[in-house]
Design a protein around this nucleic acid. Structure first.
Length: 99
DNA sequence: GGTGAGCGT
């Protein structure tokens, strides 16, 4: 599951997110969005976890928590394929809903 | 050199 992490510290790196999410579950990969020109962190990143249950647990656990001295926001990531163009109509998680 | 809602090289 892709996890969207915002309000991150500008000095926070991918290893910090991976370590924070790894303590709640298996983390496949973590990425911090950085500027292409300045090379600095944009303040948000993405964490990919293979287990959806652990991902939800990590979101609930790390959401609105303190990381590197800054309160971060952890939410489910939206498919960036449908972010800009291509209106699918379905939004808010068009994945395999178990509900 | 700074900032602080929001979804990616």
């Amino acid at each position: 599951m892709n996890i969207f992490v915002a309000k991150l510290n500008y000095d926070t790196q991918e290893a910090d997110l991976e370590s924070s999410f790894a303590e709640f579950g298996a983390v496949d990969s973590a990425k911090i969005i950085m500027d292409k020109f300045t090379g600095r962190s944009k303040g948000f990143g993405f964490v990919e976890m293979p287990n959806d249950d652990e991902a939800q647990n990590a979101i609930n656990a790390l959401n609105d928590t303190e990381m590197d001295g800054r309160t971060i926001v952890v939410k489910k990531a939206e498919p960036r394929e449908s972010r800009d163009s291509r209106g699918g109509g379905n939004r808010g998680g068009g994945f395999n809903s178990r509900y």
